[in-house]
Design a protein around this nucleic acid. Structure first.
Lengths: 143, 143
DNA sequence: GCTTGACCTAGACAGCGCTCCAGCTCCTAG
DNA sequence: CTAGGAGCTGGAGCGCTGTCTAGGTCAAGC
């Protein structure tokens, strides 16, 4: 077990700002209350960092802080509510899966447009100066 | 060429609210200005709907309205700036790709946790009443 | 003793993307 | 004639997620 970490160190490790760290704590996103030095300064443990890393994962996959707090509450309550935790995780899992699919569809559209423009630029090699292409080969919806 | 569409019809087709449609217009996200009936009501074309569908794809893949507006401006300016459009699309493409990857990583983490909980619940079949597992097999960071 | 820098709190503010409201005009049906 | 419904405008408000400010404490170093 290493020495405790200051808020600055945790900010550096997690990539969160010190502001955000305090904010997260106020919002009840930390599994157990952060210890304090006698002078009131926060002392984080490695576990806190791990927990925060997980929160960041949740956040960056679109889980609202509110839901993270709910999960945190469940964990804080201790064993006995595994079903609830599982349900929460599963529903997030579904959302993320759906989101990935959605993004893939978007990516296809975008890639298609990118290809079109590349093609177009490749044809009109010199800065693309024609006025009106005789054959509007662009079958894609909109430009 | 079909008849024009009312804002309500477009809302229905695109899934955007009429509020959002007016908002998008104010924000300059439409390639060409929406025609109006003599009484001031908006008349949309199929092209508008197509364009909006594209905007929705952009949005739902995380492109800020501001960037969509920039792209719209480029298109509105007509031919000659294909490089710029391409650059914009490419950089968005990159972001989406990165986002998908990020989400996949998150999904892995979540799936791992889901599996853990499922396992745990499967073991302690009857409502999971043990107090302390002798072997803390949970090597994952945090609960 | 003084400065510097990290930290503390409570609370105001910001950016984004809508969403809704008030108060109005039209058109159509009954 | 009236009511209902769709549309119009300008502007206020909101939910989320921070970010920043103001005003202060504390410890170390010159």
């Amino acid at each position: 077990m290493s020495t405790g970490l200051s808020i600055g160190q945790v900010a550096e490790r997690t990539g969160l700002s010190v502001h955000a760290l305090r904010f997260y704590e106020r919002e009840g996103l930390l599994a157990d209350p952060v210890r304090r030095e006698p002078n009131g300064r926060r002392v984080y443990t490695e576990d806190d960092v791990d927990w925060l890393a997980m929160c960041i994962r949740f956040r960056s996959s679109g889980m609202p802080l509110d839901t993270i707090r709910k999960y945190t509450d469940l964990v804080r309550q201790g064993p006995g509510n595994e079903q609830d935790r599982l349900a929460l995780l599963r529903s997030h899992q579904d959302r993320v899966t759906a989101q990935i699919q959605e993004l893939n569809e978007c990516l296809n559209v975008i890639t298609h447009k990118v290809d079109l423009y590349q093609q177009r630029l490749a044809e009109g090699t010199a800065d693309c100066l024609w006025a009106a292409p005789s054959t509007p080969t662009d079958t894609s919806a909109a430009f």
